[in-house]
Amino acid sequence: MSKTILQVKDLEKTYENGVKALKGVSFDVKEGEFLVIIGLSGSGKSTLLRCINNLHEPTGGQILFKDRNITRLNKKDSRTLRSEIGMIFQHFNLIPRYSVLKNALTGALYRTPILSSLFGFFSQEDKDKALNYLDLVGIKEKAHVRADQLSGGQQQRVSIARALTQGPQILLADEPVASLDPATCHTVMDYLKKVNRELGLTIICNLHFLSLVRQYADRVIALKEGKLVYEGDPKNIDQSWFEEIYGESAKEVHVN
């Protein structure tokens, strides 16, 4: 029985414009787990991930990371928390003009002294680490190519390497394959699975395609209009659950 790494309790988030993105969501995440969050666009998935690494401040409830409450942190603690939680994004969000290696090295910014980082000096240890992770996602030979020369799938792999260079304890993935073609989709998901298996890293991932969910997730939770509507094994999501989560007129599409 593995330990619980993250506990989300009655989490609420109301934006300044009055939109209620999360209306009391609770769930636990076990260490080393591949947890997938599904739900329609606007169901609160992205907000949930951004609350976990403090990019957004929740307006209610608690998040316990290794039994420590991480909501309402001050600026410094919030930076420390972010350094312990990696994140990858739908649009990769690499720095286009930087080389692949330098992009991966931005994952080490937290522990690099500000002045050194401004002059682009990173420690040899961090460089080795970054190269090592680029190797892990199979893109080491492109280390000195500019990031904007890469294809979408390759860019997403670089962004995985960037997140890993942080040395995180959890990896958040916000729709990591939503802007990729079906073939590349599987490559990126396979690398995420590899990271999950080989490094034992806990992954929390937002996904759209149920076929991918069944293939990769250990466990799945579903959000609908800011509330948790399903929690369990991905194989147990049948037609009625599908309609419950996505609405009655929804049809499942497959990614091959």
């Binding site: 690494n53 994004f89 931005t106 910014l109 500000i114 401004l118 997140a163 942080q166």
Partner: peptide, 27 residues
């Protein structure tokens, strides 16, 4: 905003965010 969010998410300080996420876009 994307690269800014990504660099913030690594735990970088405000100055590092400007230097690594904003400056390359505007140089």
């Amino acid at each position: 905003e994307g690269p800014i969010e990504a660099i913030v998410a690594t735990g970088a300080s405000s100055l590092q965010v400007v230097w690594f996420a904003v400056v390359p876009q505007i140089i």
